[in-house]
C-alpha cells in the first residue's frame, strides 16, 4: 500500500477531523482539525496503518496569525515504506495538546524539546521539563518574538545568559523580509527588541 491509500484510510476512519491529503514534492500532508483526537489518531496510525516509526515532531510559530502554533508530526511506515505528515493547529490561548508518548516512547523527548523551545505544553506527559536549555530559563527561544541575540537572565549557581553582540552582524539577514533592502541587517537597530 502506498502513502496515498494509507492517508485515505485514515481519512475514512476520522472523517470529521482529518482532512484530505495534500501533496507537495511527493510528500503527503494531512491536517488534523481536532487536536484532542491526537492520541486516537496516533494509535490508529501505528496499529492499523503500520506507521511504526515516529520520525520527528516539530512546532511552528505562525507569529501574528491565529492559531499561533502548528504541530508537525512525521510518520514513517517500515512495512509500507511510506511517509506521512500530520499537522495540527493550536491557538495561543490554549497552547496545550495531548501527548502521544504512550504510543511512541520517542515522542517524550521531542515533546520536551517543543515545550522548551516554544512553550507548548503536552497534557499527560510524564516528565515535561526543559531539555536543551536549563530548568529555570525564563524564555522560549524559538518563538518568533524572541530575538536571536537572546535576552539576559540569571540563575545563580546554574547558568546565566547575556545578549550576544550582533552589531548588525554581517551574516544575519532579516527573516521573511520582502526585498534586499529590508533584509539587509544594517538597516535594523543593533540589539533591538524583536
Amino acid at each position: 500500500m502506498n502513502a496515498r491509500d494509507l492517508a485515505r484510510q485514515l481519512r475514512i476512519h476520522f472523517l470529521h477531523s482529518v482532512t484530505e491529503p495534500a501533496e507537495f514534492r511527493g510528500e503527503l500532508t494531512v491536517r488534523l482539525t481536532e487536536p484532542s483526537q491526537l492520541p486516537e489518531v496516533a494509535g490508529f496510525l501505528r496499529d492499523e496503518l503500520k506507521f511504526d516509526l515516529l520520525l520527528d515532531v516539530t512546532s511552528l510559530d505562525n507569529y501574528g496569525e491565529d492559531p499561533r502554533w502548528t504541530l508537525v508530526y512525521e510518520f514513517y511506515s517500515l512495512a509500507h515504506r511510506a511517509h506521512l505528515r500530520l499537522k495540527t493547529d493550536v491557538s495561543e490561548e490554549v497552547s496545550e495538546l495531548p501527548t502521544i508518548c504512550r504510543v511512541w516512547r520517542t515522542a517524550e523527548w521531542h515533546e520536551r524539546e517543543i515545550y522548551d523551545m516554544m512553550g507548548i505544553r503536552f497534557t499527560g506527559h510524564p516528565d515535561l521539563r526543559r531539555i536543551l536549555m536549563w530548568e529555570g530559563y525564563p524564555y522560549f527561544p524559538l518563538r518568533k518574538d524572541f530575538p536571536l541575540e537572546g535576552r539576559p537572565s540569571a540563575m545563580p549557581e546554574v547558568a546565566f545568559s547575556e545578549r550576544a553582540p550582533l552589531e548588525g552582524g554581517p551574516f544575519v539577514t532579516a527573516p521573511g523580509a520582502k526585498d534586499a533592502i529590508r533584509r539587509e541587517p544594517r538597516v535594523r537597530r543593533p540589539g533591538g527588541e524583536g
Binding site: 524564555y139 530575538p147 536571536l148 541575540e149 537572546g150 545568559s161 547575556e162 550576544a164 553582540p165 544575519v172
Partner: peptide, 16 residues
Amino acid sequence: TGGMYRSYAVLQGVDR
C-alpha cells in the same frame, strides 16, 4: 569569542 554562534545560547568567549 563565540565564533560563528552569535545566538541566545552561546557564551561569547570563555574569557567572560
